[in-house]
Design a protein around this nucleic acid. Structure first.
Length: 102
DNA sequence: CCGATGATTGTTTAT
DNA sequence: ATAAACAATCATCGG
């Protein structure tokens, strides 16, 4: 039996998360974001005049419809994006102790 | 090391 | 500006 993780992620932008990190470096994006960026126009093009509900859905459908091979470019971006976030985090760490004295 | 959590990211559309 | 479907993520924390 598959291990049940914990699908406890509310579906609504977390509403102003709590305050934990001083600079909150915000992680990077996700493959879906990159993929959606490209498909969004495509999907909408094939679905002339559909509502967000449809677009968003068909978007996800196609997303997985791709083979990991196609995810490569998106995954690659997500990967690079993560690195980007790593950078902020790095700076966020560096500042963690020292204050920004101008 | 492992596991669980939370926080976040971006799109679309509509109000 | 925000909300919700859609998906990934994956960094962080703690023992």
């Amino acid at each position: 039996m598959p291990k049940e993780k914990a699908p406890k992620r509310a579906a609504k932008t977390r509403v102003q998360k709590k305050k934990k990190d001083p600079n909150a470096p915000k992680r990077g994006l996700s493959a879906y974001m990159f993929f959606a960026n490209e498909q969004r126009e495509n999907v909408r093009e094939e679905n002339p005049g559909i509502s967000f509900g449809q677009v968003g859905k068909v978007l996800g459908e196609r997303w997985k419809a791709l083979n990991k091979t196609q995810r490569e470019p998106y995954d690659a971006k997500a990967e690079a994006d993560k690195k980007r976030y790593e950078d902020e985090k790095a700076s966020y760490n560096a500042n963690d102790e020292e204050e920004e004295s101008a």
